Amino acid sequence: MSSFEAVHRWVVSADIMGSGRLGQRAKLRSRRGMYDVFESAFDAVGVAAQQMHLEDRGDGVLAALAPHVPPSALVGLWLEEVYQGVREHNAGLHQPLRLRIAMHGGPVGHDGRGLVGRAVDLTCRLCDSDPARAILAADDTVEVVFVASDVLYRSVVVEEGRFVEPAHYRPYPVRVKETDELAWFYVPGREQPPAPAGAPVQRGPAGARPAPRARAAAGARAEAGTPRPTKYAITVNGHNQIVDGAEVHGDVIGFRGADDEHGTGPAGRGRR
């Protein structure tokens, strides 16, 4: 199809968590809710039906957006509208709608039967990844987990914008089949997603500004005089000594370095 030549497009993959355990009525309700939420969110950012290709995946959807659709709107207002729509849909439901959503961009084609391209493959694997599943499993109150590829995060998310919060994303590796990628995980409405079981503690993204609460907490610690962490420690042997930062004042009998257990090597010969 000429309208879907292999050109750069942003791809969105979404999946309903636990749909295989739902009864027929609950399954239909979840699918209807997912479509209503997505259609409203795309309307909110001005993406009409003719500006995207949408495929039904049974318990999810796969979409490729027209090249001119700005990705900043997708990771900003669109994602916020999805989150708020899911919250509204779930009000009072015993079996709430919970979504995994992934996004990545790259050359995408169409062979007359569906979307084709490495960007499509990676987006689907990010959506179906173990960390995305584990984040939802770690906290039953999480309704949406969003997965951004490293390309999307570093080229779009870090630039910030309305409803875009790069400091609230956390990186985890995604390893499945031939995929070995770093991806960025975000839970709307949270300062950080719940850590997947067994995952290492992740620091905030490099270069991103800390969240307002984190900045406030850091300021409070500074005002309270909480000592800052140090990169090294000093052990001093002697009397009448005052240690000020990295300087020692007083009669120093000797000191011991990390490579000198008894103070007799180069580190232990600094006497005066």
Rank of each mutant, 00 (worst) to 15 (best):
182 L>E: 07
203 R>K: 01
132 A>C: 12
252 V>C: 13
164 V>G: 03
258 A>M: 12
151 V>W: 15
131 P>E: 04
148 A>E: 02
139 D>R: 08
211 A>C: 07
138 A>S: 05
131 P>L: 02
186 Y>D: 05
150 D>P: 06
157 V>D: 01
190 R>D: 14
148 A>Q: 12
192 Q>E: 03
244 D>C: 12
154 R>K: 09
154 R>G: 05
158 V>P: 06
174 V>A: 00
152 L>M: 13
222 A>R: 12
241 Q>T: 11
207 G>W: 10
234 I>R: 07
234 I>K: 08
269 R>F: 15
196 P>H: 00
261 E>K: 04
204 G>D: 08
263 G>C: 01
137 A>G: 00
170 R>W: 06
221 R>E: 11
144 V>S: 04
263 G>H: 06
204 G>P: 03
130 D>K: 07
190 R>E: 01
209 R>V: 09
179 T>E: 11
211 A>E: 11
241 Q>L: 13
159 E>T: 15
149 S>G: 11
217 A>N: 09
171 P>Y: 04
168 H>Q: 09
216 A>F: 09
235 T>K: 14
241 Q>K: 10
146 F>H: 07
235 T>D: 13
168 H>V: 10
232 Y>N: 03
172 Y>G: 07
233 A>D: 10
218 A>L: 08
168 H>T: 08
171 P>I: 02
138 A>G: 04
261 E>G: 04
208 A>R: 15
148 A>R: 07
170 R>Y: 06
167 A>T: 11
172 Y>R: 13
239 H>T: 15
265 G>L: 03
270 G>H: 14
205 P>V: 10
218 A>K: 00
182 L>C: 08
